[in-house]
């Protein structure tokens, strides 16, 4: 009914009940253990521009082969110019985002201003590493405008390693997205010099990239949330993706 038993158990039970393979005396007692992690799938990515940043996340929520929800966000706006996007396990994402919001509110009470994007980025790293030995199963992107008004994108691993980079993608479709971004934004493997993309082209490219990921990755699809962060603040919109 619910498939959350530890792997391998079914096989062992099968062997015992059929009696064909007697259990060796030296076998340790079989241990049942709850697996606290699951991957709910989804793709998030972000690209930094000179005076803006673009971030995207799909809204599909999967569990195993089932789609639980087609419209569940992976993004939380943390300040007036900073958004965090998270792939991986949804329950951990909810927890992490809630905790980040609490910490940022505390920062605002203490300093009477909102934290800068790089302060938020460092904070997230600290939070993740704090749970180094029972990590949040989350793959994060922090995106926003830094104190100079430049687009800032930070990529993380699950335990808090992070770096500021021009573009990053995370989640089940990360490999698909990265290769296109490497080519189109990083301009790798190009024989001739290419002009950098302007803002509109970049947003269009981002939409194409998530749509492409939705075509090939079964855990990515339904809708994509598009965040464009510039001097006017955080602008959010939504695009349709493949629904199967």
């Amino acid at each position: 009914m619910m498939g959350e038993w530890s792997s391998g158990e079914g096989l062992q039970q099968h062997m015992q009940s059929h009696g064909s393979v007697p259990r060796p005396v030296s076998n340790p007692p079989m241990e049942h253990r709850f697996m606290p992690y699951q991957n709910n799938g989804g793709t998030v990515f972000a690209v930094a521009g000179p005076t803006y940043a673009v971030a995207m996340a799909d809204t599909r929520l999967s569990s195993g082969m089932r789609i639980l929800s087609r419209n569940t966000t992976k993004c939380t706006q943390l300040t007036s110019k900073c958004v965090v996007l998270t792939g991986g396990m949804q329950a951990e994402m909810v927890e992490l985002h809630k905790r980040m919001k609490i910490l940022i509110t505390q920062y605002e009470h203490a300093h009477r201003r909102e934290p800068s994007v790089n302060a938020v980025a460092q904070l997230l790293s600290t939070r993740l590493y704090f749970k180094r030995f029972f990590p949040y199963y989350t793959f994060n992107v922090v995106v926003g405008l830094d104190e100079e008004g430049k687009g800032a994108v930070y990529g993380y691993d699950a335990i808090g390693s992070f770096e500021r980079i021009p573009y990053v993608s995370q989640g089940t479709g990360a490999e698909l997205v990265t290769s296109v971004l490497d080519n189109q934004i990083g301009k790798t493997n190009q024989t001739k010099q290419l002009e950098p993309l302007d803002k509109t082209d970049l947003i269009d490219l981002a939409k194409d990239v998530i749509a492409a990921a939705g075509e090939r990755d079964i855990y990515t699809g339904d809708y994509a949330e598009v965040y464009v962060i510039d001097e006017t603040g955080v602008n959010k919109s939504k695009v349709d993706l493949r629904k199967e």
Binding site: K98, R99, K101, I102, T105, Q106, H109
Partner: peptide, 9 residues
Amino acid sequence: RTQCQQEKY
């Protein structure tokens, strides 16, 4: 502030 954050969480 603590009480309010607790409730929000």
